[in-house]
């Protein structure tokens, strides 16, 4: 069968299944289980209405339980067990964690992650804020915003491929097709294999994510800037503030809540960063990050114990930021 037709059938079955589930389960509830007739009609209606919310929530709860809650518990279990040669597994306590903490590659990933954590949210938010402010009052601001926002529509792997071309290196003597090397050579330098130069290469990878996330930060912060009462800005003008003072002393403090939400949201993305590193360097040349380290252990080394342990570490790092983020976002909504 043609794959397109297969896809179409899948969609029909999927959507039809959802509609069918809600329709028939409600029919069953109202007509068979608690029919709204007979001597207990009133009681039956009440009972049916008590059950109905759960009927609607059921698919979501099952899906979340199966794909979110169960994996967390299972990962936790796997992180304290060891595969026994010949089949089965045994409890080993924190041995996996101990092994992981003794590996320099883990600490390299940890250190890189912390660098990502500081640099990417800071620059994404700063550039986003700058773009939001600069595009606010100009006639072609919306065009500029659309262009800056566009990278958000590209998958991380797609972005990685694009930027790999930017950083591309050709042997000396050949034309450099990577823009970075083209510039570098034009400036009189020798072609560099950028992605193999430690520390610099990590920065180059971060630039990809900053490029993507700036658009997100800009859109949210632009909306927040528009929400600032115009009169407070006029009052500041009358008070004698110059444009920089208006921006830093009047505007930024008023949208601080939104800045925090944007910052922490990007932080969450950064902590889980995997695709970009995987597609561009695969953790070589000291660019390893936690998520890629986990992938290496879990699927390349087939060491589920250490792999799960690193997954748990990522989760522990993400959770407090997530809680804070949700807390702030709710505060903003009020």
């Amino acid at each position: 069968m043609h794959p397109a037709i297969q896809g179409l059938i899948t969609i029909v079955i999927g959507v039809g299944g959802c509609i069918g589930y809600f329709y028939f389960s409600n029919q069953f509830l109202d007509k068979v289980l608690f029919p709204a007739r007979g001597p207990n009609a009133g009681r039956n209606i009440n009972r049916a209405n008590m059950i109905r919310p759960w009927l609607f929530l059921f698919p979501a709860i099952v899906a979340l339980g199966l794909y979110l809650a169960y994996p967390v518990v299972e990962t936790l279990r796997l992180s304290v067990t060891e595969r026994i040669p010949g089949g089965g597994s045994e409890f080993v306590g924190f041995a996996n964690y101990a092994q992981m903490f003794s590996e320099p590659k883990f600490w390299e990933a940890m250190r890189n992650n912390m660098l990502w954590l500081i640099i990417v949210p800071a620059f994404s938010t700063a550039f986003g804020l700058l773009a939001a402010q600069l595009t606010d009052r100009i006639s072609w601001g919306n065009v500029a915003k659309s262009i800056i926002f566009m990278p958000m529509a590209i998958s991380f792997v797609g972005a990685a491929v694009i930027w790999k071309l930017v950083y591309d290196t050709r042997p000396e003597g050949q034309d450099q097709i990577g823009i970075l090397n083209a510039f570098w050579v034009a400036m009189g330098g020798d072609p560099q294999t950028w992605l193999t130069i430690p520390y610099l290469n990590s920065i180059l990878l971060m630039i990809v994510l900053i490029w993507i996330q700036t658009g997100f930060a800009m859109v949210i912060l632009s909306a927040a800037l528009r929400g600032i009462p115009e009169e407070t800005i006029e009052a500041a003008i009358v008070d004698g503030a110059n444009p920089f003072q208006i921006f830093f002393k009047i505007k930024v403090p008023q949208i601080m809540g939104t800045i925090v939400v944007v910052w922490t949201t990007i932080t969450l993305v950064v902590l889980k960063v995997f695709d970009i590193v995987f597609a561009m360097t695969n953790g070589q040349w000291q660019t390893q990050v936690l998520a890629n380290y986990m992938y290496d252990k879990l699927f390349r080394a087939n060491d589920w114990g250490v792999g799960s342990a690193s997954a748990i570490v990522i989760m522990l790092l993400v959770t407090p930021i997530l809680v804070w983020n949700v807390h702030n976002a709710r505060k903003e909504m009020r």
Binding site: E234, A235, V238, G240, I250, P253, M256
Partner: peptide, 20 residues
């Protein structure tokens, strides 16, 4: 510019700086 005109303005919405 406004700040050098020797004027002060009271706005309809008060226009207080909410973070100060």
């Amino acid at each position: 510019p406004p700040s050098e005109r020797g004027i002060a303005m009271v706005f309809q919405s008060y226009a207080l700086y909410p973070h100060m």
